[in-house]
Design a protein around this nucleic acid. Structure first.
Lengths: 183, 183
DNA sequence: AAATTTGTTAAATAATACTTGACAGAGCCG
DNA sequence: CGGCTCTGTCAAGTATTATTTAACAAATTT
C-alpha cells in the first residue's frame, strides 16, 4: 500500500499544505505523516479517513482505487457493445470499453414501448445517475414514483430498491451511469 | 469506523460466503473477520483491500464512502443550475442537486460555436466520461486528439491534461460526468 | 444423535501505528 | 555574513491494536 503515500503527498502539495499544517488538522504528528508519505509507515483506517477529509478527497482516491483506465478511451456511436443480460424490450449498451479500473459504468438504455425492468429490484452498493434522452420513463425508488421526460435526470443510491418502466408508446432512451461498474 | 463491519457482513452474505471461506481468500483468521464485522476490531489497509478484492467490491464502498444522497433526487430539464465559473461561450449546468455525498458529478456542457476550455488543463484525481449529444467536440488528452460527434463517448483519467473545443459552427452539447464531485 | 459447520469470544502475541526529539537543508531578514 | 524560522526526514522508543489460537454454543447436516 505504498501508493497511498505518494497520493497523499501529491494532493497535499496541490493544496499548498505543509506536513505540519496537515498534521494539525488530522491530529497526528507531522513526523508520522512524513513516514506515511515516504512509504515507511501505513496509517490506520480512521487516520486515513481524517487525512482524506482534511484534503477534501476520498479514501478511495488516496489508495488509488480506479486509476489508470484503458488506452483506447473512445466508443463510437456506431460501435457500441450490447449487453446480453438485458430483459425483454430492454437494450443496454456499453458506452466505454471494458476495463477493470473504471469508477463508473456509463450505459445507454433503449426501452421499447411499455418495456420495464421486469420487477427485479437490483441491490448493490454505489450510486446511479439517469438522464432521459427520448421518451418518458417512470422510475420507482422505494415507494416514490418519478416520471422523467426528455432532459430530466435523477440521482440515487443503488441500495434502495428501484425499478423502471417506459410509459410512452414510442421507444425511450436514457443515459444510465452506475458506480461502481458491475459489467 | 464501525460501518465497515456491517458493510462487509452485508456483502459477504450477499455473495453467499461464510466467514471461513472468506478468511481463506483473504488470508486472515475467520475469528478476526468476525471481530471486524461486529465492530470489535478494525482491519489494516492492506487487509481491507484484500477483503474488498475477495468480495469484488471497493474499499471506498466498504467504508461507506458516498452513501445516502439527497432526498430530492430529481432535476428537471427546465430547472438546472448553471455554474458561474464557466469560461467564455461555455455553459455548465448541474444535473443533480448539490449534495456532499455523491460519488460522481453529472454535468451538461453547452458550448457555443468555437468555444473552448481556454487552455486551462485541469488536473485532479478521478475519472471523466463524456457523451456528445449535439455538434462536434474535439478533446485533447495529453498529445492525442479525438473528435467526438453525436453519440460518441470517451472515458479517461482526470489526471491526464485535457482540453476541449467545439469545432463546429453550431452549438454543441455534451453530458460530462466526473468523479469525484468538485462542485 | 453424532458430526460437521455456523458465528462469536477470551486471552495471548506479534506487529505496527504513532510520538518525541533531534537533525540538515532551504529560505528570509537584518 | 549570522541568526531565525521554516521545511521534510530519521532513529528510537512506547503504546496501541491488528491478528492468531483455541475453545465455545447454536444450527445444520447426515
Amino acid at each position: 500500500m505504498k501508493i497511498v503515500g505518494v497520493n497523499i503527498k501529491r494532493v497535499r502539495e496541490d493544496r499548498g499544505m505543509t506536513l505540519r499544517s496537515l498534521s494539525r488538522e488530522v491530529n497526528v504528528s507531522a513526523s508520522f505523516l512524513s513516514q506515511i508519505e515516504t512509504g515507511k509507515a501505513s496509517p490506520s483506517l480512521v487516520t486515513l479517513k481524517s487525512i482524506a477529509d482534511a484534503l477534501s478527497t476520498t479514501v478511495g482516491n488516496l489508495i488509488g482505487e480506479g486509476q489508470k483506465v484503458s488506452d483506447n478511451p473512445i466508443v463510437r456511436a456506431s460501435e457500441r457493445t450490447r449487453l446480453q443480460e438485458a430483459g425483454k424490450g430492454v437494450g443496454i449498451y456499453l458506452l466505454t470499453s471494458q476495463d477493470a479500473n473504471k469508477q463508473m459504468e456509463p450505459l445507454l438504455f433503449k426501452l421499447s414501448a411499455k418495456a420495464n425492468s421486469g420487477g427485479v429490484s437490483y441491490k448493490h452498493f454505489g450510486q446511479e445517475f439517469v438522464l432521459v434522452l427520448k421518451g418518458a420513463i417512470e422510475i420507482t425508488l422505494n415507494d416514490s414514483m418519478y416520471v422523467l421526460r426528455k432532459g430530466d435526470s435523477i440521482y440515487f443510491n443503488s441500495n434502495v430498491p428501484h425499478e423502471f418502466r417506459n410509459i410512452g408508446n414510442e421507444e425511450a432512451e436514457a443515459i444510465w451511469v452506475i458506480t461502481p461498474p458491475t459489467f
